[in-house]
Nucleic acid binder design. Sequence first.
DNA 1: CGTCTCGCTTACGTCAACGTCAACATGATC
DNA 2: GATCATGTTGACGTTGACGTAAGCGAGACG
Lengths: 160, 160
Amino acid sequence: MALELRRPERTFTIRQLCVEFKVTPRALRFYEDKGLLTPAREGMNRVYSYKDRARLVLILRGKRVGLSLSEIREILELYDEDDDAAAQNAHSLKKFREKLVVLEQQREDIDSAIEELRTACERLEKFLADKRPDLLPRAADYDQVLRARLDGHGELVGAK
Amino acid sequence: MALELRRPERTFTIRQLCVEFKVTPRALRFYEDKGLLTPAREGMNRVYSYKDRARLVLILRGKRVGLSLSEIREILELYDEDDDAAAQNAHSLKKFREKLVVLEQQREDIDSAIEELRTACERLEKFLADKRPDLLPRAADYDQVLRARLDGHGELVGAK
DNA sequence: CGTCTCGCTTACGTCAACGTCAACATGATC
DNA sequence: GATCATGTTGACGTTGACGTAAGCGAGACG
């Protein structure tokens, strides 16, 4: 009995997922509309399983790296496909490879952008340290940032 | 006299930039509309300077890494600010730092997405090699890809 | 019992980033 | 001087990813 209360059986309401991932109900229903999520129903209400939650994680990550919802859906569908459908998997492989090329290009872009910003920051810091050291951010400010991140934006490590 | 013909004096028509960077005139005018570019005028026509071109490069890179036009505009404005305006530069520094945090997060996302895709590819490959080796992409196919990229999608290295 | 809160659906609104189309100016060329 | 390529300014259309508002059901609370 107690065994059935373990993680895989857990379900989530729409609001729980909304709070956890800071998305709106509208967004989740939208993803469902577009075929990225297919939660079960209990009467009229949506019931999200752990699998649904996992998909949502992938959706949000995909979004962060700039994939469109339809691209994300393609990828999710590939994950779903029956392992028997070999021909389909050949197609999947090709798609995955294409995605990989794009992402690797994107990685390079980000790296160079980061590089640029870093040197720009250094330049600015030296300039300010020289002429207006009073304007440089202080350690206290940094603590502020740290505290803010711990409060609101930290990952719920234990909940994984 | 001949000195004035050197690079910094060069200007570009809208079409030249369009061809070089594979964007439409509409896009360039749109960027101007949004305050990201401010080319000079010769009569009615736009005349882009080397500085404008440099800004365009930054715009396109920003786009590739997923920045919105307004974010890009902010950054461009920061580059413009007078180096004497120390207070402004302190603000710039803060903005840059924030951007850096976002980009670094994005880099992590991309890395993990790449990682996931790679292992998924391997899984698929093994599966296919085992059950349907006939469906595996052949060396000839790969040559196809290489040729396509050399034809149409390569960087114009010499034109830099 | 009324009123919240949460949830559902349907439908229209919005914002970014352009595309597309119309209507016109200008210089070169046939 | 008619055509053409290239330029201009509106103004409207489009796509993606939701926001927002309207209207309604069902359980919880005072």
